[in-house]
């Protein structure tokens, strides 16, 4: 017990230490990408017809005329102090965008991930357990259709059906204008803000707004999970320790639940971490479809305007989220699978 306990701790410490170089590489890559990307941020910001003197003045003001290593040093220094700068186009604090729009995206992606797991994992387990039976065929078809469907197509269909035809759910925005006006801000995550205030009408209004975008994004990823979980269950049911458990007269239900399902979910957890990155990409489209004031939506707008300061900050946040989620996933994997700790 003591041995495996301390090995878990040392594994986690090493894993956390590995985050530092990962982040440095991330920062460097983003910095360089911004410098090699086509177009000049200054001219883009000024609208393209500015006099050379103004361009030169702004270039100097933004520090783009300094040597690259100085720019890089300054950039890392600022970021380490939580200063992501100001957007060039609309002079907003990038930190503010990250906090406000990021909170909306966090709300959406977490809800979507919950939908994806709640739908994908049980259906995948069922399909794998009853392989090649009718239930498997039906769920596989469902999974493929969901996965193949672009997020905006599914979103539009959902908007037409549940919004326009049935008129059950709101199809746009994060909350009704009235709710937004009456709410106080604590975390920028509207659901949590409503809970903190005990403002239940606001909570349900936000919740209603969340249902369609979260389900749309969640179902696309549920398609991935169905297939992934199914394949892993089928593979695990062929494992030697499954046969060994049966040879000891363990009842089939325990064999399937305790041995097959648990072991089948280990690789799935790793993939969940990777899916978070894709989920953020999917969020850009979902946010645009549902007019969701998220960070993906903001990225899309600032990219169009070549606002490099804003894009740089948002891309770094995306990268940090991916780094953090893979860290969390590795923690969970190490807790579940003792073999992971000895790498």
């Amino acid at each position: 017990m003591a041995a495996s306990g301390s090995s878990l701790k040392s594994y986690l410490l090493v894993r956390i230490a590995m985050v530092i170089p990962t982040i440095l590489i991330l920062l460097t890559l983003v910095f360089l990408l911004m410098r090699v990307a086509p177009g000049n941020p200054v001219t883009a910001a000024l609208g393209g017809h500015a006099p050379p003197a103004v361009i030169k003045e702004l270039t100097h003001q933004l520090g783009y005329d300094r040597p690259l290593y100085q720019q890089f040093g300054l950039y890392v220094w600022h970021i380490l102090h939580g200063n992501f700068g100001t957007t060039i186009t609309d002079k907003r604090q990038v930190t503010e965008i990250i906090l406000q729009n990021g909170a909306a995206t966090l709300e959406l992606t977490v809800a979507a991930m919950i939908v994806a797991l709640l739908v994908g994992v049980p259906i995948g387990l069922l399909a794998g357990r009853f392989r090649d039976r009718p239930v498997d065929a039906v769920t596989r078809l469902f999974g493929v259709v969901m996965y193949a469907m672009p997020v905006f197509v599914l979103g539009l269909l959902a908007q037409i059906l549940f919004g326009s035809i049935l008129n059950w759910l709101p199809i746009s925005g994060q909350a009704s204008p009235l709710t937004t006006a009456l709410m106080t801000t604590h975390t920028n995550i509207l659901l949590m803000d409503a809970v903190i205030d005990g403002n239940w009408p606001a909570f349900w209004d936000v919740f209603d707004h969340l249902i369609l975008p979260a389900t749309t994004l969640g179902l696309v990823f549920a398609g991935v999970f169905i297939r992934l979980v199914r394949v892993n269950v089928i593979r695990t049911l062929k494992d030697d320790y499954i046969e060994a458990a049966r040879a000891r007269g363990i009842r089939e239900r325990a064999v399937v639940y305790r041995h097959a399902f648990r072991n089948a979910l280990v690789p799935v957890i790793t993939v969940i971490g990777l899916e978070v990155a894709l989920l953020m990409g999917g969020a850009v489209l979902t946010e645009t479809t549902f007019n969701w004031p998220g960070i993906g939506h903001a990225l899309y707008i600032y990219l169009e305007n070549r606002d490099y300061a804003a894009v740089q900050g948002i891309v770094i946040v995306f990268g940090l989220v991916v780094v953090a989620s893979s860290l969390v996933v590795d923690f969970i994997s190490a807790l579940i699978d003792p073999r992971m700790r000895y790498k």
Partner: peptide, 13 residues
């Protein structure tokens, strides 16, 4: 019943 390959007969988790 015991088996030929003991390495994979115990549940690793």
């Amino acid at each position: 019943l015991i088996f030929q390959e003991p390495m994979t007969r115990l549940n690793p988790l």
